[in-house]
Design a protein around this nucleic acid. Structure first.
Lengths: 137, 137
DNA sequence: CTTGAACCTCTAGTGACTAGAGCACTTACA
DNA sequence: TGTAAGTGCTCTAGTCACTAGAGGTTCAAG
């Protein structure tokens, strides 16, 4: 049995965040000490570790909540967990693509001014002028 | 002179968002009709277009606010606007890199189950188990 | 027994909007 | 000139995933 601070240290999740997860119903309310302080065991540690990993992977809390419910009733878990993973993968690939477009765009904006001291900088104009952009965004 | 709805149509920025930008001080308070409705001209259109483009590029409103202030006092704009662009480019490249790591990670998680009907799916375990991950996140 | 760190609850703030309530105004047509 | 639809107004509250702070209590080491 250990305190919320200890749990925080072991998982890397900040103390207020742990309380927030509890409030959101993502982790069950733990037992308490005589003085009303939270006391956790390895189960709490596992659950929080699962959430942490999901968050690090960029899953929204709602998706994590779904996965947790799947764990609890393991029967139908198969198809759904694949779906969640696939959806998220698609989402991430879309985000990567969009960021690549933005990268190109910013490179173009930077190139619109060579940075020389006597040069009239039109980087601001480039920021404002969408019509110069190659892609859509 | 045109209404907020017309401005919204021309820029692709939603009406409540325009009002929000005004509230945040990103666009000046426009003139009003006799009945107290906002009336815009091409200046308002340009300003909002600038903000829209910046947002599409992923700049936070604070960075856009900086750029707008640079436009107003054009002297020192040079160095600062380059700095803002460079910072943002760095940020975007970092995000792309992190997303690539997550992509690999999700592919690995998906591969941990071949999806066959008799297969014991451990995709949930893979989600929970950070120790299997290649990279840090 | 004392001290200081860690804990408690509660409220409010972040960014960038979005949604809704409950009204007022504008505009096109009869 | 009347009216109805559409658009506009302000204000408040909600979103997500936390984070910060106030003001008080408990725990653990010396």
């Amino acid at each position: 049995m250990f305190s919320i601070g200890e749990l925080s240290k072991r998982t890397g999740v900040k103390v207020p965040t742990i309380r927030y997860y509890e409030q959101m119903g993502l982790i069950p309310e733990p037992g308490r000490s005589e003085g009303n302080q939270r006391r956790y065991d390895h189960q709490g540690l596992d659950r929080l570790g699962f959430i942490k990993h999901g968050r690090d992977l960029g899953l929204p809390l709602e998706a994590i909540r779904e996965l947790i419910q799947l764990q609890d009733r393991a029967g139908a878990a198969h198809v759904d967990s694949h779906r969640i993973a696939a959806e998220h993968l698609q989402d991430i690939r879309g985000r990567i693509q969009r960021l690549h477009l933005l990268e190109q765009e910013l490179v173009r904006i930077q190139a619109s001014c060579d940075g020389g001291p006597d040069h009239c900088c039109n980087i601001l104009r480039a920021f404002g002028d969408h019509s110069q952009c190659a892609g859509t965004h």
